[in-house]
Write a protein that binds this DNA or RNA. Structure first.
Lengths: 203, 203
DNA sequence: CGATTAATGGAACCGGAGACCCGTTATGAC
DNA sequence: GTCATAACGGGTCTCCGGTTCCATTAATCG
């Protein structure tokens, strides 16, 4: 074998999968602040030296976990109605954030992103992927004439999620189905009124 | 002197002020994850034993800092136009979050809130106060007939901030004046369309 | 003003997260 | 199969955040 060869096959991949899965479990249980690499190693039945060597820090591990999460895509809705599509999106986000396991995981990775540039980069990429998956809902609605031309599709999708994350992280209000429906409705109304058109609104 | 007397006067108050100020500085520099009570103590020129005894944990210290922050109120705008008022609010939030010092501080306290129930409670109270200060803008607009009856004023105010916090914490997009204006405009449009009326939207 | 005792401050102590060393395993080229 | 070595794993050590102990300072009451 030549010098410098990488060996991703078999064991290495198995170790990565086990460690990322264990990391998610640990994050759900203790949050990012309580993430202990030795604990992750023992959950994954892997030597703690391995975890420290390959990922280095808790933030590095979370960044890799996010990269992995970004690869699992969730298909968008396609009901033919913008309001219905966005409601489906809002409900999906709402269920995710309200779920004890998923919600805790998302809180943890968001915290990690505020603590480490690489984790932040990975988080932004994760959401960029998710938003790009759902943007066609808005683009198609614009083509159907439901929205003004020049509407920023990604911004509309972000507007649906934003109030739900605000509740989760900041106000502490419940992230329930009513909040999801309200967010979807508000996004549609604002988009129809032209609040998300590209021009920079001269007062 | 009787047994069990509390002594808030003089030294105690001075220590609290110095420690809270030092805590804010430390949070700005190292974030919540890197908050070290010994470091805070030395910045405040106070014995580290004192900090550990009175606040116990980093989260407890942040909770107290938030309680202190909630007491400093920022007056709302009163321009006579809902859009102008909300734009003023959005710009205020935007400037705060975009400011290197304030933005870092807010990120840090939000992180703390996701890690500790008391800090979360303090954060929710902080925002409840801020939202209550600005809600009259919306209520007066409703009385002027600019909005449908039954509009949830607090929800409208939250809708203005939510996209800005989403950018700060999640998407990583810039928190600039354009985003602020967009958020204010969208909130007004959605409110006028009745997206924030109390009824639970039977679709 | 003086006694009482909250409240603070310095220093020694403790435990666990993370770094390091070196032997062991198993991947991939031949 | 076999060989070189990338990658893993257990044990040990170190460093620092957090606790405890006791002496010192100063806030309140008479």
């Amino acid at each position: 074998m030549t010098v410098g060869t990488i060996r991703p096959g078999g064991r290495t991949a198995r170790v990565r999968a086990a460690v990322l899965s264990a990391a998610a479990d640990a994050l759900v249980e203790h949050g990012f602040a309580g993430l202990d690499l030795a604990d992750v190693a023992s959950r994954a039945e892997v030597g703690k030296t391995t975890v420290y060597r390959r990922w280095g820090t808790t933030a590095g591990l979370v960044a890799d976990l996010l990269t992995d999460m970004a690869e699992q895509s969730s298909p968008r809705a396609e009901t033919g109605s913008l309001l219905e599509d966005l409601r489906a999106n809002a409900r999906l986000v709402q269920r995710t954030l309200a779920d004890p396991r998923q919600g805790a995981l998302f809180r943890a990775v968001i915290v990690a992103a505020t603590c480490d540039p690489r984790a932040a980069e990975a988080l932004h990429r994760f959401y960029a992927v998710r938003i790009a998956e759902w943007a066609p809902c808005v683009e198609e609605a614009a083509q159907r004439g439901e929205l003004p031309a020049g509407t920023d599709a990604a911004e509309v999708i972000r507007a649906v999620s934003a109030p739900l994350y605000y509740r989760l992280l900041i106000s502490g209000d419940p992230v329930d189905a009513a909040a999801a429906d309200c967010a979807a409705e508000a996004a549609v109304a604002a988009a129809q009124a032209g609040a998300y058109t590209a021009d920079s609104d001269p007062t």
